[in-house]
Design a binder for these strands. Structure first.
Length: 255
DNA sequence: ATGGTGGTCCAACCA
């Protein structure tokens, strides 16, 4: 089972690229973030023609998540129980007996800002949600745009970046607490090239300088981590004309 | 610290 995540920064713009990538990479599951369109604008037909089922939880202009899969998804959840949030950032579903939790974690703007406090509260709610999910599902994969670089290897210039947003101690502690529930970063189960990133700022020629961060993560429960056979970043779509600022991250499982 | 680029949508916000 090949599972991938991609923050597409508007599916209105990037649908042709997503279809192109589905055709060449042929994942069983692809989760998308920042589709930036209402659920009713989501083009299920385009994915049907490509041989995929699809499902979205969208909103206008901002956020929005979707899941595209070879076999249909069920048991769909679009938020954390008891955590009221108009922002569409969560899409959990079960596909081929695997629980797939697609996340678009808040960016947080700046350490100490109102958006930063929202991010930390959101991560606390995520922790509670995943605690319950892990009790219910042995085979669990939590993936998406985490907007957190787990450690210094995941940052192009950790000294320059310092404790700024996406790297602050409180964000990393929140991620660690979530992983301590029994979820591991499958990318680090394998040898990886140094300076492998999943996001590069559009500004200041980030991609050309490889000035990036690895903030798109695939976390797996113990049984899924044990069956993971590969995980890698596919940089190619970031080289395309008018790209997203993120590129797909992939994990393969032998179930 | 600022500004650089890009998406949404036309002023300003978000990343």
């Amino acid at each position: 089972m090949k599972i991938a995540t991609w923050n597409v920064n508007s599916l209105n713009v990037r649908l042709p690229q997503v279809l192109e990538w589905l055709g060449s990479a042929v994942p069983d599951v692809l989760v998308l973030q920042e589709i930036k369109q209402l659920t009713e604008k989501f083009d299920n037909d385009a994915f049907t023609e490509a041989g995929y089922k699809s499902l979205a939880s969208g909103q206008k202009t901002y956020n929005g998540v979707a899941v595209v899969s070879k076999t249909p998804a069920d048991g769909v959840v679009t938020g954390f129980p008891g955590f009221d949030d108009p922002q569409r950032r969560v899409l959990a579903s079960t596909i081929d007996t695997v629980r797939i939790v697609n996340l678009y974690v808040p960016n947080g703007n700046n350490v100490g800002s109102e958006k930063y406090e929202y991010k930390l509260g959101w991560l606390e709610a995520l922790h509670g949600f995943l605690q319950v999910e892990l009790k219910q599902y042995d085979k669990l994969v939590v993936l998406g745009d985490f907007n957190i670089a787990p450690d210094d290897r995941d940052v192009y210039d950790p000294v320059k970046w310092g404790d700024d947003i996406l790297c602050s101690p409180a964000e990393r502690a929140a991620l660690r607490k979530i992983m301590d529930l029994g979820l591991s970063d499958v990318f680090r189960q394998f040898d990886q090239p140094e300076a492998t990133f999943s996001w590069w700022d559009y500004r200041a020629a980030g991609f050309r300088r490889n000035a990036g961060l690895r903030i798109d993560l695939i976390l797996a429960s113990e049984s899924m981590a044990n069956s993971c056979t590969a995980s890698y970043v596919d940089r190619e779509p970031r080289t395309w004309e008018r790209p997203s600022d993120h590129t797909p991250v992939v994990a393969e499982f032998d179930l």
